[in-house]
């Protein structure tokens, strides 16, 4: 028997509070469903519009003046190469920056300013990165309107995402684990390399993929640095069967990318090209979703292995 109220009062009060709880669940689910529903609708719409164009040919043909002959070969190859450069550049730089800020930097006004700026960088409009890259990579460094310039630009763009994501992952490693390693006589670098980094790999890779899925759809910055919309050749593949097995000529190659190709098709009056655009957009969206799925899978794998 409760001292402050009768059992009926207690039950009535509890019922009301539990109803509030349910109301929140319902509201949350509704909002979530409408967001997901909208995305699904968009995707279905794109697939329906582009249905006629899906097929092997669409993936293996270069762009063409004839809509029914045009494909996205140079676009998806270009996008893949750009993403490769972006990942290879942004991952080490972003992770190193995050390690410095999280593990090494003294807490003073200077690192405070850096931290605020890193967060602010995430909010800079992407076209500004495009302008920066045009001046810096394309002209100043003479990289030209190339895969390299595009990859570097998008790497800049997603650096803040990777830095913030990595810092969160590093921070999730418990203090007790660091103390255990320090206690055995490890240096700061040994603690980082032997423990903190390996245990936060899942979070870091998740951050990278989220960054890449942001980059893959970016159009403005790569238009700014001069992506072409009509490319009817492929650069030399980065890996070959003969010595020296890798080549870097593709870095200097001119390029197009998925969003550019879509943008180009959509701006044509011919209805047939609209179909191409829809099909390409559906494929781009699928690529993004697939990357996110990989991120989720990685996070799940690592969580299962390491649960503190």
């Amino acid at each position: 028997m409760s001292a402050v109220m009768t059992i009926e009062e207690l039950r009535n009060g509890l019922a009301w509070r539990k109803n509030l709880d349910k109301a929140f669940v319902v509201a949350g689910l509704l909002i979530l469903m409408s967001c997901l529903g909208l995305l699904a609708l968009l995707f279905v719409d794109l697939v329906r519009d582009g249905a006629a164009r899906f097929g092997w040919d669409f993936l293996t043909q270069f762009p063409s003046r004839k809509a029914e002959r045009a494909g996205i070969l140079s676009a998806w190859v270009g996008t893949s190469m750009i993403m490769l450069v972006t990942a290879v550049v942004a991952l080490p730089v972003g992770v190193a920056a995050a390690i410095y800020l999280e593990e090494y930097a003294p807490k003073n006004w200077f690192t405070g300013v850096i931290e605020i700026n890193v967060t602010n960088l995430a909010g800079v409009p992407s076209i500004v990165y495009g302008l920066l890259a045009l001046g810096l990579f394309v002209y100043k460094f003479g990289f030209g309107q190339s895969v390299l310039s595009a990859g570097l630009t998008l790497a800049l763009l997603i650096l803040p995402i990777i830095i913030v994501g990595t810092r969160e992952a590093l921070r999730a490693v418990p203090k007790a684990i660091r103390e255990a390693a320090y206690g055995l006589g490890a240096t700061r670098w040994e603690v980082t390399k032997d423990h903190v980094l390996p245990y936060s790999t899942g979070g870091i890779l998740t951050g990278l993929i989220l960054g890449l899925s942001r980059a893959i759809g970016e159009t403005a910055p790569i238009i700014t640095i001069g992506a072409l919309s009509f490319i009817a050749f492929l650069p030399d593949p980065p890996i070959s069967g003969a010595f020296p097995f890798v080549n870097f000529a593709w870095l200097k190659s001119e390029f197009t990318a998925m969003p550019i190709q879509i943008f180009n098709w959509i701006s044509r009056p011919d209805q047939a090209f609209q179909q191409n655009a829809a099909a390409a957009a559906a494929i781009l969206l699928a690529m993004t979703l697939a990357m996110n799925a990989v991120a989720i899978w990685i996070r799940y794998r690592f969580r299962k292995k390491i649960n503190w």
């Binding site: 007790a176 684990i177 103390e179 255990a180 390693a181 206690g183 055995l184 423990h195 292995k305 390491i306």
Partner: peptide
């Protein structure tokens, strides 16, 4: 000088 902590903290 070695140390053993309050909560067991083996490395994963």
């Amino acid at each position: 000088i070695g140390m053993v902590f309050q909560k067991p903290n083996p490395f994963p």
